[in-house]
Design a binder for these strands. Structure first.
Length: 527
RNA sequence: GGCCCCAUCGUCUAUUGGUUAGGACACUUCCCUUUCACGGAAAAAAGAGGGGUUCGACUCCCCUUGGGGCCGCCA
């Protein structure tokens, strides 16, 4: 066994890791994190990272899920060197396309009597299992078909009697050195013979994985803790077939708030879901890396390339980690702030469109050939007023909410008032502290007067700030310099919200006409 | 029930025999501030219990307790 430190200097290509998802569900956070660790380890050792699709379960596997897994892994930036879409010399990389290979080894196992046909019915087995559990025994196969006479087997097979193939699990102790947990030992005398295939052309997981990891020259199997108890079975099969044993490393599980393994009932933990809500890949990568690993110092911000440099299996945690959405959000907010306004605008616009606030329009523009000739220009219009909204305005809107965003989808809730003609809010919201209707009215009237004096040319947030701040200092109960007396009713009149960005920048984007209209509407509400 | 794994603030974790047990998220308070957020400052918050080993244990060993995983003709 090598330490990860030694492996950094291992010869290039020596290390081969893999992620082997079954396309029976969306790419979820647990799988993505396993993929990440395999990727990091392989890249750091200048090795290869392989994607293999384990679609032996014909009923549950689907191309849509395979597609989801591939697309989202790519979106995260976890790229593989070989996979169903990138051929390598050990392909094909879908188990369904490797059936001949499994058959070859299954035949060997059968011929050597290391595996045998079992004709027990599922019902029969289930009854026995229940009984054993109730007796406090480990449920295991009785071995009923283990020594059937050859003629009987032949006869049953010829009759088409339903059967499966079982591997003779040697009754001995199996131990291995786990890269994360150290030496692990299992008494396989306690286990029964396991089913490794439904028939020669329908292999099952535990068998297929052994064959593929061998055929694909996988050097390090890094996977979730739920596979610990599968490992000794797989080791026994490797021994039966004369395969070398890869290194094993079992990662701690990612847990829900109830401390159990993350599963469907915990809700949406698909990478697709995070993506749709507006989480950034760099935030997800950074967060996942810290679920079960840390660099040992206090640095917490890591990009994928820096993780490749710093990652080490020795620092991987043994205990399960509870998934904490707040921490992901906080990290996501950080990464959103790191990105440019242009980029965040691009990412936020789909949410406005989806909410029906704006509509994208495509205009065909004719330019002289030297300037590009015919071009399609994308613009946006307000879905209520049909008025064109320039990208410039859209970017201004995003910019004042940039640092408030925890995830991009929040932009709708935050900034919808820019696009709406009619704001829905209770007039009580206009009151700052103990103001009464009359006082609000006076303030709004004053605002209307002051603002109508400002020319369109001077309608900038700086100028509005200068004028209004001066006024805000002058009014209020007993000149307490409580700016809220003027500013709160203004902000609510413009946004209809309890919390928002500042009123000057909002007024600037809204423009003079709309700003005054909203003040008038507020005035109407309060009288 | 059997086998196996795990155990430091609420959460993710640092500590690899000697530290005022550190950081981050969340929470609370304060500053900035019309609000919210950002930013800044501060506070509160942890070694499951019991035995050993040792001059000295969060750290090593054992037991207990607690949590988890697996026990499929799923992967």
């Amino acid at each position: 066994m090598f330490s990860s430190e030694e492996l950094k200097f291992a010869k290039p290509g020596a290390v081969r890791t893999r992620i082997a998802p079954s396309p029976t569900g969306l790419l979820h956070i647990g799988l993505a994190r396993t993929a990440l660790f395999n990727y990091l380890f392989a890249k750091q050792c200048q090795g290869s990272f392989v994607l293999r699709i384990e679609d032996t379960d014909l009923e549950r596997s689907s191309p849509e899920y395979e597609n989801d897994i591939i697309e989202n892994l790519k979106w995260l930036g976890i790229n593989w060197d070989e996979g169903p879409d990138i051929s390598g010399k050990y392909g094909p990389y879908r188990q369904r396309e490797r059936l001949d290979t499994y058959k070859k080894y299954l035949d060997i196992l059968l011929k050597d009597d290391k595996a045998y046909y079992c004709f027990c019915s599922e019902e029969e087995l289930e009854v026995k299992r229940q009984y054993q559990m109730s007796q406090g025994e480990a449920p295991r196969y009785s071995g009923k078909c283990a020594n059937l006479p050859k003629e009987t087997v032949k006869k049953y097979l010829a009759e088409g009697k339903p059967s499966v193939i079982r591997f003779r699990v040697a009754s001995k102790k199996v131990s291995f050195n786990d890269l994360i947990r150290g030496r692990l030992e299992f008494d396989m005398g306690l286990a029964g013979d396991i089913v490794i295939a439904k028939d020669v052309s329908t292999p099952l997981y535990n068998f297929a994985v052994v064959i593929d990891d061998f055929e694909m020259k996988i050097s390090h199997v890094i996977r979730g803790e739920e596979h610990i108890s599968n490992t000794p079975k797989q080791i026994l099969m490797q021994e039966a077939l004369g395969f070398p044993r890869p290194e094993y490393g079992h990662l701690p599980l990612i847990l829900g708030t109830d401390r159990t393994k993350l599963s469907k009932r915990h809700g949406a933990f698909g990478i697709t879901d995070f993506r749709r809500e507006g989480y950034l890949p760099e935030a997800i990568i950074n967060y996942m890396a810290f679920l079960g690993w840390n660099p040992g110092d206090e640095k917490e911000i890591y990009s994928l390339p820096s993780l490749v440099k710093e990652f080490s299996l020795e620092k991987v945690q043994k205990g399960g980690a509870i998934f904490n959405i707040k921490k992901l959000e906080s990290l996501n907010g950080f990464y959103i702030r790191q990105r440019s306004i242009e980029k965040i605008t691009e990412l936020c616009l789909p949410y406005f469109i989806e909410a029906g606030l704006i509509i994208p329009i495509f205009e065909e523009m004719q330019y002289p050939p030297a300037y590009g000739g015919k071009q399609i220009i994308q613009k946006y219009k307000n879905s209520e007023t049909e008025k064109i909204i320039t990208l410039d305005v859209l970017q201004k809107i995003i910019s004042i909410y940039h640092e408030r965003l925890k995830k991009n989808s929040e932009i709708v809730e935050l900034a919808d008032f820019f696009f709406k003609e009619k704001l829905e809010y209770d007039k009580k919201l206009l009151k700052w502290k103990g103001m009464n209707d009359g006082e609000v009215r006076d303030v709004l009237n004053k605002l209307e007067n002051i603002l109508s004096e400002i020319s369109e040319n001077n309608w900038t947030k700086e100028n509005l700030g200068n004028v209004l701040l001066l006024e805000a200092e002058r009014i209020g109960p007993a000149l307490q310099k409580d700016r809220g007396y003027l500013l709160w009713p203004l902000r609510v009149a413009l946004t209809g919200k309890e919390a928002s960005a500042g009123p000057f920048e909002i007024a600037e984007i809204l423009g003079k006409e709309k700003t005054l209209n909203r003040i008038k509407t507020a005035l109407y509400k309060i009288s």
